[in-house]
Structures are given as C-alpha cells and as structure tokens.
C-alpha cells in the first residue's frame, strides 16, 4: 500500500514562502493545524518569511525517518542570536515536531535531526531571534510509504 496525501493547499509551489504573519486577516493563508500552533505559541508576534534555510529531501520513500537540517542567518553574537527553532508538520497527526532552544554559546545557528512525516506536506520552521523577531521558512516533501515497511503512525 502506498500513501501520498496532497495537503499543499496553503503554500503554492516548492520552496516558495507565503507570509506567515499571524494577524487575523492573514491567518487564512496557512492551514488550520499550523494556525493553531502559531496562535498557541506566538499569539501576538508577527512572523516574517526569510532567514530560515531548510535542507529536506523533496521525496522520501519512508516517512519514518527523514533527515532535516535547519540553519538560520544570524551572527550568533551575545547581542544578536537565534533563541529558538521550532518545527511544525501540518499534515502529521500532531503538528508539533520539535523545538530547539539556542543561544550565542552555540556559535552557529544550525541544527539537524530526523523527523517523521506522515504525508505529503510543507514542513514549516519558525525561528525566534534575540530581538524578539520571528522568521519562518518551509519545505515541501512528498512521502511514499512502501507496504513492507513498518506502520508510521
């Protein structure tokens, strides 16, 4: 059995980035699961597209483990650094994936991990900077799950 579910409705095109500004009039631009996470975690702040670079395979034959690397453009000095990086997978049963808290002590705003991806979707990353600004990026991924592999969720 193979599953690929198309839920790329809220962001058109791979690698492009819609504005994730969390203001009531723009909330319609992002999918409901992402909206709810953004509203919960960033009720007042404005999220701008940019600064977030994502390395994610465009096609994975097994969504059980997909390697993902995120870097954020930041000098990582004591006065100007990335304070957190958060991953949201809108089409997963739970959109929350992981959050990483950083500081200038890291020297480089770059994290790598392996995530579960249950269906074709845009993986959204929000980065918070020391000045309180929020930045975001997204990457599209198509997942096919071959029958011989373990169930994902």
């Amino acid at each position: 059995m193979i599953r690929t579910i198309n839920r790329r409705n809220w962001l058109a095109g791979a690698g492009t980035l819609a504005t994730l500004t969390v203001q009531p009039r723009l909330l319609a631009a992002v999918s409901e699961p992402v909206q709810s996470v953004l509203k919960r975690d960033f009720p007042t702040a404005e999220i701008q597209p940019g600064r977030v670079n994502i390395e994610l395979p465009a096609l994975a034959e097994n969504g059980n483990s997909v390697r993902m690397k995120i870097s954020v453009d930041s000098p990582m000095t004591p006065t100007d650094y990335v304070s957190f990086i958060q991953i949201i997978a809108q089409a997963n049963p739970l959109p929350d994936v992981a959050r990483f808290d950083l500081s200038h002590a890291n020297g480089l705003a770059e994290v790598e991990t392996r995530i579960r991806v249950s269906a074709e979707q845009d993986i959204v990353v929000v980065a918070g900077l020391s000045d309180g600004s929020l930045w975001s990026g997204s990457a599209h991924i198509v997942v096919t799950v071959a029958a011989c592999l373990d169930a994902l969720y």
Partner: peptide, 25 residues
C-alpha cells in the same frame, strides 16, 4: 550551564538524532 535544549514530540523519529554546535570556551 545549559547551552542547547530540545523539546521532542512523537514526530521525532525513533532513535533520536540531534546535531548542533557549541563554541569552545
């Protein structure tokens, strides 16, 4: 002193792999 923390949800793959950087002091 904590220099890196991660909050993990079920969507982190089995046998969690986490890579990051730390500046030597």
């Amino acid at each position: 002193k904590p220099v890196f923390t991660a909050t993990l949800h079920p969507a982190v793959a089995a046998n969690p792999f986490i890579a990051f950087h730390v500046r030597a002091q």
